[in-house]
Design a protein around this nucleic acid. Structure first.
Length: 139
RNA sequence: GCGGAAGGCUGGAUGGCCGCUUUGAUGUCGCAAGACAUCGGGGAGGAAAGUCCGGACUCCGGAAAGAAAUGGUGCCGGGUAACGCCCGGGCGGGGCAACCCGACGGAAAGCGCCACAGAAAAUAAACCGCCUGUCAGUCCAGAGCUUGCUUUGGGCCUCUGUCAGGUAAGGGUGAAACGGUGGGGUAAGAGCCCACCGCGCGGCUGGUAACAGCGGCGGCAUGGCAAGCCCCACCAGGAGCAACGCCAAAUAGGGACCGCGUGCUGUCUGUGUCUUCGGGCGCGGCAGCGGAGCCUCUUUCGCUCCAGCAGGUCCGGGUUGGCGGCUGUAGCUGUGUCGGUAACGGCAUGGUCAGAGGAAUGGUCAUCCACGGGGGCGCGCUUGCGGGUCUUCGGGACAAAAUCCGGCUUACAGGCCUUCCGCGCAC
């Protein structure tokens, strides 16, 4: 995990191969509890299928986009939680490398029923919309 | 055909695009660890679940035996690595049957409890009742007179009451009332006597056994609850893969060895020193004795300590990260064959391809297939049901590995198969 992260940073620093090697830009996944707790203090946007939290990390920490997923027991049993997390991962994989902003931590939270059942296109659109709400006024 | 009983299988399919994880080969980069690319292989379940039992494995507790405590199991025999599981059998209960269900050892070791109701809930007792006797009245006869009372005698036929005794048939209560039914017997009754049933004891026969059958004896003793405590037999040391091992980092001050030092007695062709040459004293090694510690206790064996310390050298508890443990073997399973009623076991042969780790095994779209609802068309007939076809809408049970096996329990849409039972119809 740690070597891949440094490698990724090395290549993005060169800059030029941006579009061809999208997979290089795959966001690092959050695992530590304290990262989730810190992100929870940041901005949040609630959509029908999920809740998005976002926080700009302080200067000097690791670079790149980081993303975490949370599905509590409110979402359902283990099968329902797994399905919700997988759909959240898919929309994050499709949107974040393009629309996400360097140096931010994002946390996607699953919602009971909706995350697993809403149409996929709506989830994609909602994630774009929520990122625009988070980053829009600042620019 | 309808209604059941038992057992087993299955748990959507195909394709396009985009991913995740593991692994093999090749290539590129890199000192290396490794990273990336291309091609190829693998990637949830019958319950993966509940975490309820039994193990494997790992660590901890000095070893073994016994005891106590605690917990569990509980008809008999077999299977198994083991089990509280499975198979077969017995007994009891349910069902017309197929079949199903069973905390199924002991209540004459002891304690405790048995609500309400009822006279009485356990060394039996006696409320109503039934019967016998005594006395009084009633009854019969006589006498007196105030003519409905007094008194004398008789009787026990009828009834009423008091008292004394017999009885437990009947009544009523209850989940349960001190054997049941019938007959004899009696003042009324009663195992008081008899027959059958039940129960107990001992015998024979069958069975490995649980148990069953047969005939004998005993007049009947032993109410129920052990799912209240308990007794008996058997089984269990504790904790768990977040076990545990290794590596690195930073950190904290624990342990081992060396040095100096160390109960008593004996011993040493060890050694130092003193000597009057007998030996004394010190140090060291070994043995014994005593004391202390070592699973809750006891015994035996074993181990450690019995003096600590200014010092020197080495190791490193817990934490974080990484690697291992980690998936193939008491294996599991298909087929054949042999033994066994069966569970299962032996032999031969084939397959065995999840291994994540804040946790992959997917996301999405299309078509099809189950299934459900609506509508159209035509068909059968028991006239409002059956099945056919077309179209449209909905729509996919329960539930996701987390060290691994054997079980149990619980959840589960729809579909499929086999065997058996009862009823109806036809032959």
């Amino acid at each position: 995990m740690t070597p891949s992260e440094t490698d990724l940073i090395g290549i993005t620093a060169k800059g030029d191969k941006y579009t061809t090697v999208l997979s290089y830009l795959a966001p690092t996944v959050l695992t530590q509890r304290r990262d989730f707790q810190r992100a929870a203090r940041g901005k949040r946007v609630a959509m029908a299928g999920f809740v998005l939290q976002s926080l700009r990390r302080p200067e000097g920490e690791t670079e790149g986009i980081r993303i975490g997923y949370t599905c509590s027991k409110k979402v359902g049993n283990a099968v329902a939680r797994n399905r919700a997390k997988r759909r959240l991962r898919e929309i994050a994989r499709a949107i974040l490398p393009v629309k996400g902003i360097e140096g931010h931590d994002y946390v996607l939270i699953g919602r009971n029923g909706a995350t697993a059942n809403l149409p996929y296109a709506q989830l994609l659109a909602d994630l774009e919309k929520s990122l625009a709400i988070l980053h829009g006024p600042r620019k």
